[in-house]
């Protein structure tokens, strides 16, 4: 599987409602290393899903941006509209399509800086 299949994929909740597209995949270390994965193996921890992905791409999804004033406002609000879903909460993953489990826990995407 490649990030190509997931990034930009459409996300649907349990009853087929379109909830946004996948913008980013958060990896967590501590997975069991496989033959090629190298020592601190990283596995897919959670998906960032939301309407607009440009803000994440520019880096406004995380707190490290001391960004210019009006841009931070605009992009942070854009980024705030997306939510984070754990990998385990995914019902099905097909090519360019992801379906969430019913009652999947949706955490806010933007870390409080």
């Amino acid at each position: 599987m490649r990030t190509l299949d997931l990034l930009g994929a459409d996300a649907y909740d349990a009853d087929g409602q379109h909830v946004g597209t996948v913008h980013d995949l958060r990896l967590e270390s501590g997975a069991r290393p496989t033959r090629d994965s190298g020592e601190p193996a990283y596995a897919m921890g959670s998906l960032v899903i939301g309407p607009a992905g440009f803000a994440h791409r520019l880096g406004y999804g995380r707190a490290q941006m001391a960004g210019p004033w009006p841009l931070t406002l605009i992009f942070r609000r854009m980024a705030a509209r997306s939510f984070v879903v754990a990998w385990a909460d995914l019902e099905r993953v097909e090519h360019r399509k992801v379906t969430l489990r019913s009652g999947a826990d949706r955490r806010p995407a933007v870390e409080e800086s």
Binding site: L58, G59, Q64, M65, A66, G67, P68, L71
Partner: peptide, 9 residues
């Protein structure tokens, strides 16, 4: 350039 110049990373 403006965005990167504000990135603490």
């Amino acid at each position: 350039v403006l965005v990167i110049a504000n990135d603490r990373d």
